[in-house]
Design a protein around this nucleic acid. Structure first.
Lengths: 97, 97
DNA sequence: CTTGTAATTTGAAAGTTTTAAAACTATCTG
DNA sequence: CAGATAGTTTTAAAACTTTCAAATTACAAG
């Protein structure tokens, strides 16, 4: 079941595109695609050579665009792709990465 | 024949996403989808209630992301979607508008 | 409760984007 | 050529984004 989008969704579309308009955030998404075992924020930052506060900043933008879920387990936080959003707004995108 | 993309294309992807990260530019793309008889810059601006210099500014961003072609005929300039780019980077997107 | 580790928030600096008016360039028509 | 119309460039202000260090919060384990 695919959701039908209309011009009312333009704000949402724009937000998603803005979230993906930085190479670093595309790399973060790719990292999550390639590591479905759910990596912590720290691991993401380490792998991509980013400052920890900067990782938080970018993850929040992805979260606010509903491109990822974030859940805590103990001291760590994990990012998880929201395939529902990608499928609705960018079908085929995750596979193209 | 679809083109295979890699992480080397992240700059290009980011540029395309940035170009589509403004509601106005999404509306411009939709306008071009719905008016394949090739509307002038002036008509686009008129329809979307934009200042002419602002139309130029936004069309240039879409052009630089290779999302549209621009050609002149007489006094007018016309925008034309680049389906090749949409198909390569955002398959299904134009149909979702 | 204290210490350590993980992540977020805050705040300042630097950089980028958007807007709109004014000046400019290109083309057409008489 | 002059005047009109279509679009672009320049400029400056306002708004927004990104980065990083320092302060802060959240949780775990002793």
């Amino acid at each position: 079941m695919t959701i039908k989008l209309t011009s009312k969704d333009d704000e949402k579309r724009a937000k998603i595109f803005k979230a993906l308009s930085e190479v670093k955030r595309i790399e973060m998404i790719r990292y999550l695609v390639r590591h479905p075992e759910h990596k912590t924020c720290g691991e993401v930052g380490e792998s991509l050579g980013m400052d920890k506060s900067n990782v938080s900043y970018h993850l929040k933008i992805l979260y606010e665009a509903e491109l990822i879920h974030i859940y805590r387990r103990g001291q760590n936080k994990y990012g998880q792709l929201r395939e529902d959003t990608f499928n609705a707004f960018l079908p085929g995108f995750l596979d193209s990465l």
